[in-house]
Computed example of a mutant assay.
Amino acid sequence: MNPAATALTDQAEAAAMHSLTALATIAPTVNGTIGARLPGPISLRFLARLEAGLLGGAIGFCDHLSATAPRPAFWSPWAAGKVRCAPCAGRAYTRIKGTTEDRRCDRCRRRMTVTNSLAWQLPAVVLTLPGGAARAIPPMQVHLGLCSACRHVDTEGDDRP
């Protein structure tokens, strides 16, 4: 590996650890727990939506994120057009706090009285480009808010109508 890629990989790993620490801090505030499980069918659809949006250019990155200085990034379906840095994500969450959107299921769009939060940590990716230049896609947290029925579908893995 070239020195630029090694340095970028070190930065990406540090950003991923910082992101996981933030996730562990956030989890108790939304009645969440930290654990490892594979994404269910609903989560997989949202992750595929993120991937398609990034590859197709429908989802961009806030100006504070850089391919040469990875830091934790955040994406949510209700603000789907942009992957945001922590401060920008915090402002986006503050804007919807207490609104109808804050209590709406990201999948079925029903209003919920209890929010069932899910979050996925995606790893950073470091690429070495022709000519030796290195670029990184930051570690990303994907946050979902699901009603109890949709959360059950995602947890049980059964998405039949």
Rank of each mutant, 00 (worst) to 15 (best):
T99S: 11
A36Q: 09
F46N: 02
F74I: 00
I137S: 02
A89T: 04
A14G: 06
T21P: 02
A133K: 08
A5K: 09
D102L: 04
P28K: 15
P72E: 01
D63R: 13
A4N: 03
T6L: 12
A79L: 10
W120Q: 06
L20D: 06
V153Q: 04
H152R: 15
D102R: 07
P161Y: 01
L38A: 15
A12W: 00
M112C: 14
P130W: 10
P87V: 13
C147R: 10
D10C: 10
P39F: 05
T29G: 12
G90I: 02
T25K: 15
P41R: 01
G132N: 12
P3S: 11
H152A: 14
N31K: 14
P130L: 12
A7V: 06
T21C: 10
W75T: 04
T94V: 11
A133R: 06
Q11V: 04
A73S: 05
A48K: 01
R151N: 11
C105H: 05
T68I: 01
A24W: 02
L50A: 10
L127M: 03
P72N: 04
R110C: 09
E101K: 07
W75R: 04
D154T: 00
H143T: 13
A69R: 12
D63A: 14
E101N: 05
A15T: 06
G53A: 11
E101S: 06
P41H: 00
A27F: 13
L144Q: 04
H152L: 09
A89K: 05
P39M: 00
A15M: 03
T115S: 14
T9C: 03
A80N: 08
L122A: 02
G81R: 06
L146R: 09
K82H: 08
R103N: 11
K82D: 01
T155E: 13
G40F: 00
A12F: 00
A149W: 01
G53R: 02
N31S: 14
R45K: 05
T9V: 07
V142C: 05
I96H: 01
D106S: 06
P39G: 00
T21N: 13
C85R: 05
G81I: 05
L118M: 12
A89P: 04
W120F: 08
A24H: 11
L8M: 03
A48R: 01
P3H: 10
A16E: 14
E156Q: 13
G98S: 09
A4R: 08
L20K: 08
R135Y: 07
L47F: 00
A134V: 03
